[in-house]
Design a binder for these strands. Structure first.
Lengths: 207, 207
DNA sequence: GCAAAAGTGTTTATGTTACACCCATGA
DNA sequence: TCATGGGTGTAACATAAACACTTTTGC
């Protein structure tokens, strides 16, 4: 049971898609970076086990969690293991808050999803596969809002899409696309800043 | 390790999407219909194990095979089992040929995919999920050709799509859609019948 | 010639992309 | 009032759906 966990972190060139890795504390691949994982409890269903695994690494609740794939190549490891992998999105504000507080777990580090170090087992392959799935899913669903706080402006959401997809989007077309769906609801609050205040939106819980 | 295997069978109202079930020979759910399955060999990768499971039930090679999902709810069975499920497409001509020969396996029976009997464990749920995936995938890929022999007319292929999707498609638009892709290649052979001969096509192996 | 399926062309609707332009605010 | 991001409008283009029409065969 492993998890590929995505969140956003601010960088000089804009937000970057990042994921947490843990340093292995035992053989094989001792000391090598790997996806966070754990063992499946006999009386626990798969989604719960994925949540628990994720909580043990980040101490946070995911805003999105989905099974990715089950890997089981014989050469994955000296002792062959079937690995059920989940992927998840975390609200970036919660991750940031936790990192500045005392609760940051040991030997966990965040890496740029597009620039990972060599990982244990076939975890590079798994992480790439998860990234493909995320990018694909972002193309046809509004899932990326799960990386943002409860309320956000359309520009903030667009920047998330740009960070995930790796390309610029037209602001006006992006707005129209999302206003046409019922997955986003406008609030009466505005984000005030340097320029014209921007309306805040929130995710529609009913869909 | 279980498999949801789809093929087509002729019926009075046109081709129907069917899948094979096996009668359970032991408790729990003795005598109840279930998806074909088997146990994962320790030195076998998942795709191979799925192929083997499928061969044990149908004695045939699938024209398409893909992992569906891994199920593991605690209440799936008295003794909880993690079940890695694959789904597959079989060429209908091979299935028909085998059924009329001696090779038809015992206690295997084909059922209409939209009208299944009550199944053991959560297999009804799994079969429905596989059907959703098939119908969804047919919408954006040319995968359904895997249900037909090597060579087929566009009308035959359209009827496959109609059987899978459960609705009629416009013949001329269907033709244009498929001629625009490179997943189908025209041959110089024609199917002669009551009316104007129809050109035969085959799947493009290179894509 | 007629019926029926094969195959072509055209029109309409719909959605996507590009981009010009106005609006509201802080400085 | 100017710079800038927020927000609206619209024309161009691509894709899909609907359907009229021509072609080729068996009988």
């Amino acid at each position: 049971m492993s998890a590929v966990i995505f969140s956003l972190r601010s960088a000089p060139e804009g937000d970057r898609l990042m994921l947490p890795l843990v340093r292995r504390t035992r053989d094989p691949h001792l000391g090598v970076w790997a996806l966070p994982g754990g063992w499946l409890d006999p009386d626990e269903d798969l989604d719960s086990a994925a949540s628990r695994t994720l909580a043990e690494t980040t101490a946070l609740m995911p805003s999105y969690l989905e099974q990715l794939y089950t890997f089981g190549a014989v050469d994955r490891s000296p002792t062959r293991v079937v690995s059920i992998v989940y992927w998840a999105l975390l609200r970036s504000d919660l991750v940031d808050a936790q990192r500045s507080s005392a609760g940051a777990p040991e030997n966990v580090e965040w890496f740029d999803a597009d620039d990972l170090p060599p990982l244990a087992f076939d975890h590079n392959h798994i992480a790439d596969y998860a990234l493909d799935r995320l990018r694909n899913k972002v193309g046809y669903s509004r899932i990326a809002a799960g990386l943002l706080p409860d309320e956000f402006t359309l520009t903030e959401l667009r920047e998330v899409y740009e960070a995930v997809l790796g390309r610029r989007l037209d602001p006006s077309n992006f707005r129209r696309l999302l206003e046409g769906t019922d997955e986003l609801v406008p609030t009466e609050r505005f984000r005030t800043g340097k320029h014209r205040p921007a309306r805040l939106y929130r995710r529609n819980r009913d869909t």
